[in-house]
Structures are given as C-alpha cells and as structure tokens.
C-alpha cells in the first residue's frame, strides 16, 4: 500500500515546544521532507541558533550542533570546511541573523560557503518575550517599542535582498508560510537552496516570513493575516538571486 501521509523520517516523533499556531513547525517539516526526498539524512549536520529555534536539534533526526547567538553561519563554515561531504544548514531567526549575527551571515555569503541558511522572519524576538528585532515593522508595538517602532529605532531592513548582492551567493529567495499555496512555494525554494549546496554552487539562503501569534498578541488566523498584509507589503516574496539555472545551462551546453 502506498503511504500518502505521515511523519518524514528526518523529523523526530516528539511534541515541540512551539506555541499553538506558530509556523516554525511548518518550516521544520518542509526541511525534514526535503532531507528525506534528497536522501541527505545520513550526511546532514544542522546548526541551531539562539532564539525560539534553539531547540531545533530535538526535532530533526539528523546530527546537530548548537551555535552561540548569531554565529551559526560561522559554526556551519567550520563544519563544512572540516568535512566538505556533509550537507550543512543553519536555522536562524530574524534577531539571530539580522541583528547579532550580521557579520557572520554577510561574510559566509560573501565567501560563498557551501552551506544553506534558513531564516524564519517573524519580525520579533520570540524566546526572550517579544522585543523589537531589525525586521519589526514601523509602528509595531513590542516589549521594547511600547509606543510602536519609530524613526528613533531605524527602519526594518531586508536581509534576502542584502545577501543577494554578495558575490558568493548562488540562490537567495523570500517566501512565506501563511497559506497553503505559499507553503508549497516555500518548499520549492528551500529545495532549490539545498540543491545549490549539493551541486557546490555557493551559498544559499531562504528567508521565510512567518507568524508569532503569542508575541504579536493575535490568534493564529489573525497572525497569518498580518503576514499576508503587513509583512508582505514591506518584505516582497521572490527569488533575488538564482544561478542554479545558469549552472544547469552550463552543464547542458
């Protein structure tokens, strides 16, 4: 009998610590499915960051190392350089990647490290209780912007577009997981990012917009609507760099 549903083998059969309605689980599952589909489980090392996804290593049936805050791309660099046959990905949030880890992500991208960085951008620090992050939208109320994010805090910046400018990047995209169609598209983008690494084309990164019902003070449905309206209007989805097609064309030329 053909199995049509079930847990990916690369996903651990445990209850996660994520809040009800949080989309981290959706993104975890996309990654686990792809690790299965691309037959990567036996040679994968994941790098967990600091934030809500700090415990990601409990949810994947792959080797994992936990990195200091923001340093996941540097840790991943060390793993990959030491054992180039491994498939290495980081799983980071917007605080980890876009604030404290800016130097590490920019330089891993610039060097073209053969790693994949997955960023779950929910525009807030979740684990520490809902503080402003670099991607918090203007006017948004957080624990550290009780009157709303104002000009004094600077404006949110777009990590995917920034990394797309780096000479070493092979694939950079932004997607979201607030509806089913885009969950499917996210999986397509992460697949491309993984394949870019497998084929040794360079650094790849997917920024995935997702919700944070708890710290946004919304129901899961409201939080997904916030992603679809407010976040999408500032953070457009799309592929900002893709050399995978050129590389394929080169192969077939």
């Amino acid at each position: 009998m053909k199995r049509i549903a079930g847990m990916p083998e690369s996903m651990s059969a445990v209850v996660t610590h994520y809040c009800p309605g949080c989309s981290h689980g959706v993104l975890h599952r996309i990654i686990a499915e792809l690790i299965d589909e691309l037959d990567l489980r036996g040679r994968t090392v994941g790098v967990a960051s600091v934030g809500c996804s700090v415990l990601a290593y409990n949810y994947f049936e792959t080797d994992f190392v936990q990195a200091p805050h923001g340093r996941a791309p540097a840790v991943a660099t060390g793993v990959k350089r030491a054992r180039p046959n491994l498939f290495v990905f980081t799983y980071q949030g917007d605080g980890d990647m876009a604030a404290i880890g800016t130097a590490e992500i920019i330089h891993a991208a610039a060097r073209g490290e053969r790693i994949t960085a997955i960023m779950y951008n929910n525009s807030i620090y979740g684990m520490t209780g809902g503080q402003m992050s670099p991607t918090t939208l203007m006017g948004a109320v957080t624990a550290t912007t009780p009157y709303g994010r104002s000009e004094e805090n600077g404006r949110p910046y777009r990590m995917a577009e920034l990394l797309a400018q780096m000479p070493g990047t092979a694939y950079v995209a932004r997607t979201h997981v607030a509806d089913v169609a885009n969950i499917v598209k996210t999986k397509q983008a992460v697949r491309k990012a993984f394949e870019a690494q497998i084929r040794g084309l360079g650094f790849s990164m997917v920024e995935v917009l997702g919700n944070c019902p708890t710290n946004w003070g919304m129901t899961p449905a409201e939080s997904n609507r916030y992603v679809l309206t407010e976040m999408l209007s500032y953070f457009p989805v799309g592929e900002f760099k893709d050399v995978t097609k050129e590389a394929l064309a080169g192969v077939h030329a």
């Binding site: 090392v45 790098v47 190392v65 990195a67 200091p68 340093r71 540097a74 840790v75 991943a76 660099t77 060390g78 793993v79 990959k80 350089r81 030491a82 054992r83 491994l86 130097a103 590490e104 920019i106 330089h107």
Partner: peptide
C-alpha cells in the same frame, strides 16, 4: 581560513571541532 573577526574564527573552530 581568515575569518571576519575573532568571534567568527572561534565559532568556525567550534564547528570544525564538532566534526
């Protein structure tokens, strides 16, 4: 590998040591 900072260097070391 020349890192972008001592922080990055020591964390690359962490990654390599983990293997």
């Amino acid at each position: 590998l020349q890192a972008e900072s001592e922080l990055a260097a020591v964390n690359m070391l962490l990654g390599a040591a983990a293997t």
